[in-house]
């Protein structure tokens, strides 16, 4: 057990190492020059050379990577190249909770809706509800998220006026206001995720419902709801859980469209805006943090397999 945990941690470290090298190499691989970003237009060649020297850009790659990684491990991701030259770690610490909250809220909404929906569909497979759900989820999946977001804003914000469209209220300021503002972005995210979760879970549930142990549970006189929740859901949730982990990582780092539509100061906006301005330390730091979350989320998912199926616990974790 201890050995397998160590192995797991080593794997995580290896992935993060590769990601960090890749992120850091952005400076060398992408067009643009941090020194130009800082100086802007109208500078002399001497000024440029001096700044490059000062920023350490002339040092060999490994030296630069080593000093960046050393600081990063101490929580210091550098400072922004753009005035007011804020601290990268602080900026990420401000943006991450916004993205994480909207993503988690959206995924929770998706799970709450998709699990019963998938159960009904699977239990009455090929029935009327199942057909409607099948067509509906397919339709939702084929709508691009910016369009869905715009429609949601139009209906709930512009016409009904139930929810604000922009302006973010921090969780610390007021929980009610915060949730009020987070609802529509979360709903926009939840829409596509619900459709995906429902389809995946429905398929797995239909397979599970063919199992003898489902028949055995029914033969004991268990109610359909009880059979679905107590016997069918857990063995059917592997694909769903896997998808959930991938979605969580993806949503935190790259919900740019949703963040843009609702003017959320989240990670997606931070990364895209910084990349656009050539603010390399900011992009590097943010990408590293997103990668870390991705890797941790998936490690957590892997651990959950052992919870879902006791037969995996002994074999390998």
């Amino acid at each position: 057990m201890a050995w397998s945990v160590l192995k797991r941690l080593a794997e995580i470290a290896a992935v993060l190492f590769v990601v960090s090298v890749g992120t850091f190499a952005l400076v060398d691989l992408t067009p643009g020059d941090p020194a130009i970003t800082v100086l802007g237009e109208g500078h002399t060649a001497e000024e440029y050379a001096a700044l490059r020297d000062e920023m350490g850009l002339n040092d060999p790659f490994l030296v630069r990577y080593g000093s960046w990684l050393g600081s990063a491990l101490h929580g210091d991701l550098g400072t922004s190249l753009i005035p007011p030259n804020s601290d990268v770690t602080e900026r990420i610490a401000a943006a991450l909770p916004v993205s994480a909250e909207v993503a988690v809220l959206g995924l929770a909404m998706a799970l709450v809706v998709s699990i019963p929906l998938a159960m009904w569909s699977a239990y009455h497979a090929d029935g009327r509800v199942d057909r409607i759900v099948g067509a509906g989820t397919f339709g939702i999946l084929s709508v691009p998220s910016f369009l869905a977001g715009l429609l949601i804003i139009m209906v709930f914000s512009n016409q009904l006026g139930w929810f604000p469209r922009a302006e973010w209220v921090r969780l610390g300021e007021s929980l009610g206001d915060n949730l009020h503002h987070a609802f529509l972005p979360a709903l926009t995210i939840a829409l596509a995720e619900t459709a995906m979760f429902t389809r995946i879970l429905r398929g797995d549930l239909i397979t599970t419902l063919q199992e003898d142990f489902i028949l055995a549970a029914r033969a004991k006189g268990m109610s359909p709801v009880r059979v679905l929740f107590s016997d069918a859901l857990r063995p059917s949730s592997f694909s769903l859980i896997t998808l959930l982990g991938i979605s969580l990582g993806r949503l935190i780092g790259s919900t740019v469209i949703v963040e843009y539509l609702f003017a959320l100061p989240g990670m997606g906006t931070l990364i895209i805006g910084s990349a656009d301005k050539g603010d390399f330390p900011m992009v590097q730091g943010a990408v590293l943090v997103v990668a870390l979350i991705y890797v941790l989320a998936n490690a957590l998912i892997d651990l959950s397999y052992g919870y879902l199926d006791p037969r995996i616990r002994r074999a390998h974790v």
Binding site: F213, S230, D309, P310
Partner: peptide, 12 residues
């Protein structure tokens, strides 16, 4: 049931 390998829920 016929097959005790499949008649019991593996996760319960």
């Amino acid at each position: 049931f016929q097959d005790p390998m499949t008649a019991l829920n593996p996760v319960k």
